[in-house]
């Protein structure tokens, strides 16, 4: 083994460490998203990392469902249903929380690559 071999080994180790660091940093982005399902199909994905207030409209079974996101949280603002259960629920922001509009067949879930406190919630 000569000097240039040793240099090669050191360079390789450095490159490997840099890649590992980059992967670690990349994985640290919380990457929070809201997934909106209509009747078992994913119809819309909303990035929740933005702080600004935004409005979205999704077609539900009974009509248009208005969804608002703000500050990493999401809620159903207006919808057509007998009891308005899902618009009464208000904002959710945790991955184990779900908004369910059964009359409109709309389900909103939050996913995030960050590890969470709870994996699921029993209702």
């Amino acid at each position: 083994m000569n000097k240039s071999d040793l240099k090669l080994i050191i360079v390789i180790i450095l490159i490997a460490i840099i890649i590992l660091f980059m992967v670690a940093i990349f994985n640290n982005n919380s990457n929070k998203k809201a997934l909106i399902y209509y009747d078992n199909d994913l119809v819309l994905t909303i990035d929740l990392t933005e702080k600004e207030k935004k409005e979205y409209f999704v077609d539900g079974y009974n009509g248009v469902v208005k969804i608002i996101t703000e500050d990493g949280k999401i809620k159903v603002d207006e919808e057509e249903s007998p009891l308005h259960l899902c618009s009464k629920q208000g904002f959710i922001d945790k991955t184990y929380e779900t908004i369910v509009c059964l009359p409109n067949k709309i389900v909103i879930k939050i996913v995030s690559s960050k590890t969470n406190d709870l994996d699921t919630i029993l209702r």
Binding site: Q89, L118, L122, R123
Partner: peptide
């Protein structure tokens, strides 16, 4: 696994 409060959906 968390249990939901029956009185408060969130």
């Amino acid at each position: 696994v968390g249990l939901q409060d029956p009185d408060n959906a969130s």
